[in-house]
């Protein structure tokens, strides 16, 4: 009588558990293939750059994490990990900003060649721009050093393979947070099922008596 709801609950939990295991296996497979891809690209980069050019010796002396995980514990006791990657796009924007700033200055110079000496004020203005722009670029360089792209540890012009390796490992990092969440969920389901099994045994013993 009291056995049916417990059994139904257990069945549901078992199905959920199996689903979680299946998802874990799929994600694991993807993770493994991505890591392999990353290694392959690192090896290719090493082949083109030289054996000692891609090793732990190139790691920077100062490092700051560009990735962090936020964890939140649910009511069931399982932990959810969310991966957050700091985009280096802000850096790119800043550098592209300096390029854009240089653009008009170049235009000014070009214009100076065409324009007769009638407009000294304009010349001054354009010179003023030229003088202020390098300061702006220095500022952006300072901010760049705070969040340096790890690719630059290995050189300025790194092979494409190293960039591909970086992309693969970034994906691996996101995936590893998902897998960690899933592992935690699996362990939580396992705990729940064990509790249900105990409950079922108690009910069974009660029925026998």
């Amino acid at each position: 009588m009291g056995l049916d709801p417990v059994s139904v609950n257990m069945d549901q939990q078992l199905l959920r558990f199996m689903d979680q295991l299946e998802t874990l296996e799929e994600k694991r497979e993807k993770l493994n293939s991505l890591i392999e891809e990353g290694w392959f690209n690192i090896s290719k980069a090493r082949y083109s750059m030289g054996n000692k050019q891609v090793s732990s010796l190139q790691y920077a002396n100062e490092m700051e994490s560009l990735v962090c995980v936020h964890s939140s514990i649910s009511e069931k006791g399982d932990v959810e990990f969310k991966c957050e990657q700091t985009e280096l796009k802000t850096e790119d924007l800043k550098t592209s900003g300096t390029v854009e700033n240089i653009g008009p200055a170049d235009g000014g110079l070009r214009r100076r060649m065409n324009v007769k000496q009638k407009e000294p004020k304009e010349e001054y203005a354009s010179k003023g721009q030229c003088e202020t722009q390098p300061q702006g670029s220095i500022k952006s360089e300072k901010s760049l050093s705070q969040h340096q792209d790890p690719l630059k540890w290995f050189g300025i012009l790194v092979p494409q393979n190293l960039k591909q390796a970086q992309a693969a490992f970034k994906e691996v990092i996101t995936l590893s947070a998902e897998i960690a969440t899933l592992q935690s969920a699996i362990l939580a389901t396992r705990m729940e099922m064990q509790a249900q099994i105990k409950e079922k045994h108690k009910i069974c013993q009660g029925l026998k008596e």
Partner: peptide, 13 residues
């Protein structure tokens, strides 16, 4: 290689 890869991904601190 594993460490290099993950550090390239930006986890190093």
């Amino acid at each position: 290689d594993t460490c290099t890869g993950f550090l390239l991904g930006g986890i190093g601190e």
